[in-house]
Design a binder for these strands. Structure first.
Lengths: 350, 350
DNA sequence: TGCCGCATTTGGAACGATCCAAGTATGGAG
DNA sequence: CTCCATACTTGGATCGTTCCAAATGCGGCA
């Protein structure tokens, strides 16, 4: 019966070496599975490692080898299920590659973003994946993290212009194509008066989604009424309370392309409160395909973005960059896919 | 105009020291804000730090000082909004305390949990917050992380019995009291035939919730029919497909206490498919108060657990443990609160 | 002038690993 | 018996920081 004795001080290579009468160097070779060590010696050392309960000190090794074994993930909003799934995807790939994820949340504050980046960079991550907070600029980010560490931007672009020697990769969703598909789908259903609802135009993702809508409307020769272009915070509550504005003046829309699912679900609620049944009296589409989208009443037509897969992809892009630091800056646009459900009905008066 | 020149090698204390003609020790003192340095010298050094774009190497400092500046967070399911919010709460407090969060996801696999713990422990975190995967045991966890690092268990207890020298703290939800409150509420509404629906009895949280239900039923002298005690995976889809079993035999229940919100929402769907209107023909309660709970039709009566606050609390408990490693093991039970909404209607035949 | 105290600065040894050049056996060939 | 290749093994320097004991410079005082 082998018992692992509780110890007070941390066991190091030297302890193990002393414990079985070899040098530190030999123990180190054993740890790294070098073929140089005699298998007799190896067995003895491995036994001693187990016996003393040795724990590898990766920080010390990284210091000597001048390597890093971590990747920083900085998110504007972890509580949002979209980013949570994204994070799960990142962590999975990062872990498979033998790295560890350093997490940082900025809560949409660019001030906190600077602080978080500053703190994480001191731990010397091999690279950083950043989903910027609203209003964060390239200069700020550069000041906080320097130009030494590879950065992959996710989801949003940065304000300001970045110096050319900082080559930052980008992974973004095909926002414009997404809303274009949704708008074209509504048009094909017979709708002519289609609103664009929700989001803040300050965010690049919102501008892109609005552009997709505009593109489809113009291609179909349809009118875009200014009072159908409504901004609101990307939350259910705010969307619900903005619903009335859609119907404030004639001509009234028969459908809406919403900034995202949260907004669409809020709009559904607002419609119900006005006695309109979404999916029968009014058509709408979302963006993101969050879990609730398929379970809502009616189920929501939306664009699926596969956040888990996006997380994996982001991590893989960053790993590629680590392998080849001098490769050209890469901007990747991830496809989105229209999922047609019951919320995008034909207009009532067809 | 000051420009930060892009450099190829990492700037160290020695570079800065050489750059302004002082010793490494002095620069180190400046970095740590020691009152020993002359303010003239301090200014010169600070200027040089800025000029060279020096980045503190916390790993090297930690090695020398034998300290740690990270806390590991290991979660069974980051994609679940409950844990995502929890993680956001943990990270906020961990960051405020000057630590950084090391993230690890186990995807409910105890094998991955061992691997993740093994990898994280090599980075020498000051402590670990662990929400165990299903079926994970104390022995496994101990083998993976050793007894040196303080551990706070969250949400679930571990199978097996832990050795007494590993003092592990615990933060759990008051599951039993929660479902007792929900059950008592349904009884007060006039229900007599109440089911317990969903979850796997293998999980400690499910057993505790079931116990709360049993307690309330027995205290009210009500019968518990075995065919009302239904297990299912804690997902909407599985819950929906298990709905029929509730009504397979007489007597049929008029209400159900559900394992969690996901199960409750699934049950709502299942009820609708059978032509029963939840909140009118059948009453039900959930657990967790996820975002959708208040937006569902009808809004769901449930137990709110404040996952963000729980995350903050978990981090604070761990920080306390770090301050006093010899204090007695602490088991904290976080209160939950009943939120009454429309889903818990009185029975139809009262 | 010599000595002391104060304020400030410093060289060198850690921390726990890895790298590297050099060391020790061993056995076979000449 | 010497020499050399092969198969391991090892001491010491090193990564970037902090700690510590000791050094330095300077003004004042006897």
């Amino acid at each position: 019966m082998q018992s692992i004795t509780p110890v007070r001080h941390k066991i190091t290579l030297s302890d193990v070496a002393a414990g079985c009468g070899v040098s530190r160097a030999t123990v180190s070779l054993v740890l790294r599975g070098s073929p140089l060590v005699n298998k007799h010696t190896r067995a003895r050392v491995e036994e001693e490692l187990r016996r003393q309960g040795y724990v590898y000190n990766r920080a010390a090794a990284n210091l000597r080898r001048r390597t890093s074994s971590s990747i920083a993930l900085v998110l504007n909003d972890l509580a949002n299920p979209f980013f949570a799934e994204f994070a799960a995807g990142v962590d999975a790939v990062v872990g498979e590659a033998g790295f560890v994820t350093l997490l940082g949340c900025t809560s949409e504050s660019s001030t906190r973003e600077q602080a978080v980046l500053g703190s994480l960079i001191e731990h010397g991550p091999a690279g950083i994946i950043l989903s910027p907070a609203e209003g964060s600029s390239a200069q700020q980010v550069l000041a906080a993290m320097g130009a030494q560490t590879p950065l992959l931007l996710f989801n949003r672009e940065l304000g300001g212009n970045l110096p050319e020697y900082a080559h930052w990769d980008l992974l973004a969703l095909d926002n414009q194509r997404g809303t274009r598909l949704a708008t074209e789908h509504l048009i094909a259903q017979g709708h002519r008066r289609i609103a664009f609802f929700g989001g803040h135009r300050a965010a690049s993702s919102c501008r892109q989604r609005h552009a997709g809508y505009t593109e489809a409307m113009q291609a179909a020769g349809l009118r875009i009424e200014p009072h159908w272009q409504l901004e609101c915070a990307p939350t259910r509550l705010d969307a619900a309370s903005q619903t009335a504005a859609l119907f404030a003046a004639a001509p009234m829309p028969t459908a809406a392309v919403c900034y995202n699912d949260a907004v669409a679900l809020g709009l559904m609620l607002g419609l119900s409160q006005r006695g309109l049944q979404p999916g029968r009296d009014f058509a709408l589409t979302g963006f993101d395909d969050i879990a609730e989208a398929s379970m809502s009443m009616p189920p929501l037509t939306t664009l699926t973005t596969a956040p888990l897969a996006r997380g994996r992809q982001a991590a893989e892009l960053l790993l590629q960059r680590l392998r080849d630091p001098t490769a050209l800056t890469r901007h990747t646009i991830a496809p989105v896919q229209l999922v047609v459900r019951a919320s995008s009905c034909p207009p009532p008066t067809v």
